[in-house]
Design a protein around this nucleic acid. Structure first.
Length: 279
DNA sequence: CCTGCTACCTGATGGC
DNA sequence: TGCCATCAGGTAGCAG
């Protein structure tokens, strides 16, 4: 569940389920999911605490506890699951037959929250303070926050010589944009992904800002309708293809000018763009 | 400091 | 069918 809109939809859906619940017990089925922290570190510190706030920063989901916080990062494929109680968790999770994979589970005073990622890229960590989490403290302006204005974006762009695509993927400038929505934003704003950030005029920065905000807003709407269904281990975001204009459309005609969409490796990732109308 | 590359993992898909 | 290569929405760590 990768980029900002997906994590935001998860945070909003999760909030009423866990806010002000107490964590009775932490089960770490696959300790790789807490690396480099140990399973017992996470379990010991989280157990017995109340979840005060469910928050999101960039692509991080935060559970603010009475003391310290849990961070969850889904990387490429991580997801949340929900079980009625500990009994149901143990019956269904990680049994050969059931095929329900769970890496970490928080048994609450009502219900069980599971964190699952078969690929084991995703992570659950405990921190005394958010500042201790390097991935969190390095984040720039959150793309959904009020602070993300076109003026702020213009300033950041002016200070970077990197290609726009790389700039947008770097979470320390603007947090939350990933491979899909960077492609989408650049397509909407009609910028070539290789264009250098500091070559944008202020008018152009405004155009990019508008594209990012509208792309993320539309994706968030899509992610919320229907909302994630944590009870169904098969759940995933539906209908994103509907809102995507360029990502994954290699060879298909550009929806603006008809030119075949190209795919190119940039920064080790696939970038989709129109060679004719993105300048 | 900045930038670019690789490793980290598993599963789905498509060509032969 | 089976086997192999390629691809996947992300980031940490390291070398230059």
């Amino acid at each position: 569940m990768p980029e900002l809109p997906e994590v935001e939809a998860v945070a909003r859906t999760l909030r009423p389920l866990v806010q002000s619940r107490r964590i009775r017990c932490v089960h770490v089925f696959h300790p790789i999911a807490t690396k480099p922290q140990t399973a017992s570190h996470v379990a010991r510190h989280a157990q017995g605490q109340r979840i005060l706030i469910v928050d999101r920063k960039g692509k991080y989901l935060l559970l603010i506890l009475g003391h310290g916080l849990l961070t969850m990062h889904f990387r490429l494929d991580g997801q949340l699951l929900w079980f009625a109680n500990g009994k149901e968790l143990l019956k269904r999770a990680n049994q050969n037959k059931s095929n329900v994979h769970v890496d970490v589970a928080l048994e609450l005073d009502k219900g069980v929250l599971g964190f699952a990622d078969r690929r084991h890229f995703g992570r659950v960590h405990f921190w005394e303070s958010g500042e201790d989490c390097s991935g969190l403290s390095v984040l720039g302006i959150d793309a959904l926050s009020r602070d993300f204005t076109s003026g702020q974006l213009a300033q950041l762009l002016a200070a970077s010589k990197r290609p726009l695509k790389d700039f947008l993927l770097d979470q320390s400038y603007v947090a939350g944009i990933g491979n899909i929505y960077s492609c989408e934003s650049l397509w909407h704003a009609r910028f070539n992904p290789r264009r250098r950030a500091n070559t944008l005029q202020s008018q152009e920065a405004r155009r990019l800002h508008k594209a990012i905000v509208s792309v993320l807003a539309r994706a968030l709407e899509c992610c919320l309708h229907p909302a994630p269904d944590f009870r169904n281990p098969e759940w995933w975001f539906q209908g994103l293809e509907r809102v995507l204009r360029v990502y994954g459309r290699e060879g298909k005609p550009c929806r603006r000018c008809g030119e075949p969409i190209r795919r190119r490796e940039q920064g080790g990732r696939s970038t989709y763009y129109c060679g004719r109308c993105q300048k």
